[in-house]
Amino acid sequence: MNYVILAAILFSIGSAAVLLRRNAIVAFMGVELMLNAANLALVAFSRMFGELDGQIMAFFVMVVAAAEVVVGLAIIIALFRARQTISLDEPAELKG
């Protein structure tokens, strides 16, 4: 149970990082932290219920996160090539 609370705290920190940091890589790390928090919760629940499914799900999350990191970082590089910056505030073309 304590681990779940820890996961909640980590998740909140990760979300705050996504919201507050302008550096795309840092914000991305926030996303990773949120994913890991979810993983922690899954593993903790798996432990509580004595089932392996939580762990397997956490494993899948890791795989998906790895794929996501690959694409995400590629996008950041492409962004950097185009704009010479990785600030999240810079691309504001969608401003209404």
Binding site: V18, L19, L88, D89, P91, A92, E93, L94, K95, G96
Partner: peptide, 18 residues
Amino acid sequence: GSRKFQNGQVRSYALTML
């Protein structure tokens, strides 16, 4: 008025989501 919500700032959108 609603255009102001579309400020183009990714982080604002993320905030709205949260």
